[in-house]
């Protein structure tokens, strides 16, 4: 029997004074596509950031690909797409340069031969092949997010962990992203994805885990959107953005507006 791709047992995480995760169990088997859902501050981001090693657990265990979290984990077989940070770093960098940094891992501090070709191929997977030499800060928000996805894909990971990959992403990028994911999942990629709504990915999700106040409250079939949320063409507009008039009809909406700027408690 193969080891689970991600196995989290009784995980507790404190960020500063707040007890964010309170005993989370999560198991993702190879080939599964698991959506992690929950309200703001429920601990979704904290959970994936702990899984990929950014945050330290206070208690509990995290196994990745059969290895206890730490230096034994083959990090080069895991791809992580963090929540989009402001891409405007002090010094400009091209999309290919950002993607190439995904080729580095423990034990490889310099780029392998042919990194340009690999970076270009990864960018082609997200539909940005012709943007390899463009400055990342000249790309749109959605395109920047796709660059970060390409950075995770360039190492041909077995497990992909994504934190809100489509929040605040323009429609063409969302569609390109869903198409890419469908192809990769067909090839056997295991996915753990934090989402605010299933959206374009709904067809791919094999299981949904819902967090509330740092605990798992649902683990099973993806929840059906209820009421008008399920209807085709429904634009999901959050209460706190409701003062912005929703534009309906012709499928156009404020899709370039971030659904929210989720700032979960940071240390």
């Amino acid at each position: 029997m193969t080891a689970p791709a991600i196995d989290v047992r009784d995980l507790h995480v404190h960020l500063g004074a707040s007890h964010v995760l309170r005993g989370v169990d999560l198991r993702v088997d190879p080939g599964e596509v698991v959506a992690l859902l929950g309200a703001n501050g429920s601990g979704k981001s904290t959970l994936v950031r702990t899984v990929v090693g950014v945050l330290e657990p206070t208690r509990g265990e995290v196994d990745l690909l059969g290895h206890r979290r730490g230096s034994d984990v083959p990090w080069d077989r895991i791809g992580y797409v963090p929540q989009r940070v402001s891409a405007a770093a002090g010094v400009p960098s091209t999309a290919a340069e950002v993607v190439a940094s995904g080729l580095l891992h423990r034990g490889r501090l310099t780029l392998p031969r042919g990194w340009r070709r690999q970076a270009r191929e990864a960018l082609a997977q997200v539909g940005l092949a012709d943007r390899a030499d463009d400055a990342t800060n000249r790309l749109s928000g959605g395109q920047q997010q796709r660059v970060l996805i390409a950075r995770a894909l360039v190492r041909s990971p077995e497990v992909l962990v994504l934190d809100e990959p489509v929040a605040g992403v323009d429609r063409p990028s969302q569609e390109a992203f869903a198409a890419t994911m469908a192809r990769l999942v067909d090839d056997g990629l295991t996915v753990l994805v934090v989402l605010h709504e299933l959206g374009e990915l709904a067809g791919l999700i094999s299981r949904a885990v819902v967090l509330r106040h740092g605990r798992v409250v649902h683990d099973g079939a993806p929840p059906r959107p209820h009421g008008e949320h399920g209807t085709e063409g429904h634009e999901h507009i959050h209460p706190h953005t409701s003062e912005v008039p929703a534009v309906s009809g012709s499928g156009l909406g404020l899709t370039d507006t971030p659904f929210e700027s989720e700032q979960e408690a940071r240390p």
């Binding site: 950031r49 990929v52 090693g53 950014v54 230096s71 984990v73 990090w75 080069d76 895991i78 992580y80 963090p82 940070v85 770093a89 960098s93 340069e97 950002v98 190439a100 940094s101 995904g102 080729l103 580095l104 891992h105 423990r106 034990g107 501090l109 310099t110 780029l111 970060l148 950075r151 962990v161």
Partner: peptide, 19 residues
């Protein structure tokens, strides 16, 4: 490449297992 990765996105560098 490694110093760029760490300076550009430290969280990603950690998740890559970089020192």
């Amino acid at each position: 490449p490694a110093l760029f990765s760490v300076s550009h996105d430290e969280e990603f560098a950690i998740s890559s297992g970089l020192p």
